[in-house]
């Protein structure tokens, strides 16, 4: 999986995906989207980078303290829920307002500010934190003593060496065999590439 193409694409897609996830978050009130899906998309983008580069690459760039993202997200969401009570409204009361944007007297658009969007931001960070926390924990689970990130990704597409081990039950014919064959072919083709490329990108 760690081919040059994937690595290059991952970087490009990462930026687009993150921008789109922020777009989803901010525009959720009016077009499809919202904090939850935005957060999941963000984590998907990170997962793509993980598949291409490995966990170390991410941990070197993002502070791997995702649990505090969860905490701050929850705190933020709770505060936005409680905030109306300070000015004697009900719990979770929301408010919104519109702003006209003008430059040199020319109307160029309208901005809508929703208090519920702040709540959505809390959701966004909680989702990102929780999912990244799960992802990184599973990914950096040190069961093997080999270099985990490399062999992990090799395994992801079935590139590991002992995949040829015969299953106990006889393999059925048909679709099953096709898949197995594809996997086997890919194993053979990419195994050499993987090693070369990873060396290069380290």
């Amino acid at each position: 999986m760690s081919t040059v193409i994937v690595k290059t694409m991952a970087r490009a897609v990462l930026i687009v995906a993150i921008l789109f996830s922020i777009y989803l978050l901010l525009n959720g009130a009016n077009v499809p989207g919202g904090g939850f899906v935005g957060g999941v998309l963000f984590v998907c983008a990170i997962a793509l980078v993980y598949v291409a580069y490995g966990m170390k690459y991410i941990n070197n760039r993002l502070k791997p303290d995702y649990l505090s993202w969860v905490a701050y997200g929850l705190l933020f969401a709770s505060i936005t829920a409680i905030a109306p009570m300070i000015v004697n409204h009900n719990y979770f009361r929301s408010a919104f307002t519109h702003y006209h944007l003008e430059i040199f007297g020319i109307h160029i658009g309208e901005i809508e500010l929703l208090s519920s969007m702040f709540f959505d931001i809390g959701v966004y960070f909680t989702v990102i934190g929780a999912l990244l926390f799960i992802l990184t924990n599973i990914a950096s689970d040190k069961i093997k003593e080999t270099d985990e990130s490399e062999s992990d990704r090799a395994d992801l597409l079935g590139e590991s060496e002992d995949f040829s081990l015969k299953p106990k039950a006889p393999v059925k014919t048909g679709a099953t065999n096709v898949t197995a064959d594809i996997t086997a072919n890919m194993t053979a083709n990419t195994a050499a590439n993987t090693v070369a490329n990873t060396e290069e990108f380290k």
Binding site: G28, A29, N30, V31, P32, G33, G34, G35, F36, L67, V70, A71, G73, L74, A77, S78, A81, Y91, F92, S94, F96, T97, H98, E112, L114, S116, M117, F119, D120, G122, V123, T126, V127, G129, A130, L131, F133, I134
Partner: peptide, 29 residues
């Protein structure tokens, strides 16, 4: 003030549910 009814329900009308759900997510993590 939101036009996307799904999102409005999630973060506004049923915000109470959502805050429970994200708490559950954190606990699951």
């Amino acid at each position: 003030g939101g036009k996307n009814i799904v999102n409005v329900i999630v973060v506004d009308f049923r915000g109470y549910d959502t805050i429970g759900e994200i708490s559950v997510l954190s606990i699951a993590a």
